[in-house]
């Protein structure tokens, strides 16, 4: 089944690119709206001006937030809003008629948008590197390969978690409110606003294995060299475990949801 879906990928990729070209201004705006890592970089830069914090000096912080910016782009998904809208408006009915599962369809088009997202982000990244070239560090081959696996898992987890909260719209009106709670926790605990090392020791240990770290922190730590590949392997396995959990949850809510789906407007 997976192979059959992957065969449709070239076509979906073309659709995705066509839609990006048609609505390029919209896309650029979306991509630029994830600039929070730069704000946090400015802040931590001011904090670490007097000396390193939890092992991070100014260069370390710069590298950390540049990696955060990259990973945030590579793990972007927007199935939540699509699904929420489609279920509430009844637009889902039409998508259910297609010979490809709506969740696969959306997933593959989002992967198709990835190269463009990186392209738009490149000037920003270059600017930061020029601003502080000392922060540059060339990752080893082992790190790069582990990073590729880790970031793929992080994207999948991000997509599945959005699909889960999105499909809650089948059952409840306030599913977006639940998402905002999840998002607030993600913001705080994923390493998006601060490296985990900055948190108090006991929280850092607990957060290390949390789904929030799996969503963002793990690939960032691997790419920036804040952990050795050897130490990172268990964390990547934890990511895999969270993906499995999320997959099962989505499969369950999707099946139950379709049974109760009222197809508004049909």
């Amino acid at each position: 089944m997976i192979l059959a879906h992957l065969r449709t990928f070239p076509t979906l990729f073309r659709i995705s690119v066509a839609s990006l070209v048609a609505y390029r201004a919209e896309m650029v705006i979306w991509i630029l709206s994830t600039t929070l890592p730069l704000v946090m970089l400015a802040l931590w830069n001011a904090v670490t001006a007097d000396g390193p914090v939890a092992g991070f000096d100014q260069n370390g912080m710069t590298r950390y937030f540049v990696c955060t910016l990259i990973v945030r782009q590579l793990t972007g998904a927007w199935i939540l809003w699509e699904l929420n809208y489609d279920i509430r408006s009844g637009a889902l009915s039409q998508k259910l008629l297609k010979p490809i599962h709506p969740l696969w369809y959306a997933a593959l088009t989002m992967v198709g948008a990835m190269p463009f997202r990186m392209l738009v982000q490149t000037p920003l990244l270059l600017a930061v590197v020029l601003w502080r070239p000392e922060a540059w560090r060339t990752p080893s081959l082992a790190e790069v390969s582990l990073f590729v696996v880790s970031v793929a898992l992080a994207w999948l987890l991000s997509y599945l978690s959005q699909a889960f909260f999105g499909s809650l719209a089948f059952f409840m009106d306030r599913s977006m409110g639940l998402w905002s709670v999840w998002f607030a926790l993600w913001m705080l605990f994923s390493g998006y606003i601060a490296p985990l090392g900055v948190f108090p020791a006991w929280t850092a240990t607990a957060l290390k294995w949390s789904p929030f770290n799996a969503l963002l922190g793990v690939p960032v730590q691997i790419l920036g060299g804040f952990t050795t590949p050897h130490d990172a392997v268990p964390l990547v396995l934890a990511q895999l475990a969270w993906v499995v959990v999320a997959w099962v949850l989505v499969a369950f809510t999707w099946r139950r949801g379709l049974q109760s789906y009222g197809a508004v407007g049909a």
């Binding site: 904090v47 905002s180 607030a184 913001m187 606003i193 601060a194 900055v198 948190f199 108090p200």
Partner: peptide, 17 residues
Amino acid sequence: VRTFGRVMPLVLVYGHT
């Protein structure tokens, strides 16, 4: 939860300076 999420980073940052 939203408020908590907004105020916490401040506490975190000033824990170090």
